[in-house]
């Protein structure tokens, strides 16, 4: 089975499978039909908190991201609404 990397940041670190702030990322197994939407539900990530989703560094907008199919070695990062400066 193929795998890709999921990264959870800021307040979403609470949803890391093993509670650890040392690593933001973990491997996630995928088939050739695994979508971002499936992954979000499978990991029980709170949809009302997820704000920024970057697939290999590129922003996925909220309207279409659920349908995006993941590929081997993809890196998918999730953040709540954040800002600074």
């Amino acid at each position: 089975m193929s795998k890709m990397t999921v990264k959870l940041f800021a307040g979403l670190m609470d949803y890391l499978p093993v509670k650890s702030t040392k690593a933001h990322g973990f491997d996630y197994p995928i088939t050739d039909a695994t979508t971002v939407g499936y992954l979000i539900d499978d990991l029980k990530l709170p949809r009302n908190v997820i704000h920024i989703v970057l697939l290999n560094g590129v922003y996925l907008d909220a309207e279409t991201r659920d349908e995006v199919i993941l590929k081997e070695n993809d890196i998918l990062g999730f953040w709540p609404a954040v800002a600074g400066g």
């Binding site: 990264k7 800021a10 307040g11 953040w79 954040v82 800002a83 600074g84």
Partner: peptide
């Protein structure tokens, strides 16, 4: 929530991940 918890430093990973 975001700024009180992680401050401006919350941006480090976001900006890096997007290159």
């Amino acid at each position: 929530e975001g700024l009180p918890a992680l401050g401006t430093q919350v941006l480090m990973n976001v900006i890096n991940e997007m290159g």
